[in-house]
Nucleic acid binder design. Sequence first.
DNA 1: GGTTTAATAT
DNA 2: GATATTAAAC
Length: 283
Amino acid sequence: MREEVEPNWFPRWEDELPRPEELMPLSQSLITPDLALAFDISTHNPSSAPPPPPPPDFDSPDLTAPPDSVSTGYAGDEPARTLKRPRLVWTPQLHKRFVDAVAHLGIKNAVPKTIMQLMSVDGLTRENVASHLQKYRLYLKRMQGLSSSAPGPPMSSADAATEHLFSTNPIPHPFLCRDGSGQETYMQFLSPPLFQRHQQMASASVQNQQYYHQRQMGHFGSAGDYGSLARGAAQPLGLHRIGVMTQPPTVAAFPNSYVDDMDSVSGGGGRRVLTLFPTRSED
DNA sequence: GGTTTAATAT
DNA sequence: GATATTAAAC
């Protein structure tokens, strides 16, 4: 009754789903080495992993986020409390991970905490996930309404933007399936053993307030004002890939693989998120 | 100034 | 955990 509603999504999203092997390195820091350097963030752990020197041209993609990062921040000269947490930018990659987690967990288990743990993104908080989940649910609901019996709801720019971003990712849209009786029932058939807890999703160490830096960069998009961004290191090297990088290490170097923006479908506001995410890497 | 988005509060 | 509201950024 439910499965045959859209037999197309399953093979698609399943195919696009990262394999367990790829999901292993889930625990990645939101802060890249370059970024850390640019911000003078001390991500170095004085106990084990020495900071790998990032190549000048391209940083190693296998930046395994040091899980043993400082516990409460940096008990040194830079108290974390002084650093305000920048707004989290949900890049398509990050959102993809989010969607994957939701899909794997199943809508019933897709709660902020669980999702956060499954994502295993360092620095990601439950609040972040909860907020995004809220928007995601709204998006799904809207999609249902539109595709079902919505007379003509004026799709605001927000909806368009949300839809765009969400559509950018291989969204397993099983959620959009309707029960037919107007009762939008979230499918539960994505809870199957698709995902055998690869690890004991337990690397969710949110001790670092390290977040994106997309904040107060204002117009850093217009190359020429990286000063505020890379304080100290006035190199536009940062902004490489914020968030998660799922590109295989085999990829040599894609100087043009990064785009400044997905499409800027923003409406009135014209929000521009320069997150420099790979155009299409894991797809 | 209006809109969108994430954070925060309830 | 879910929803509503507020604040920030564009």
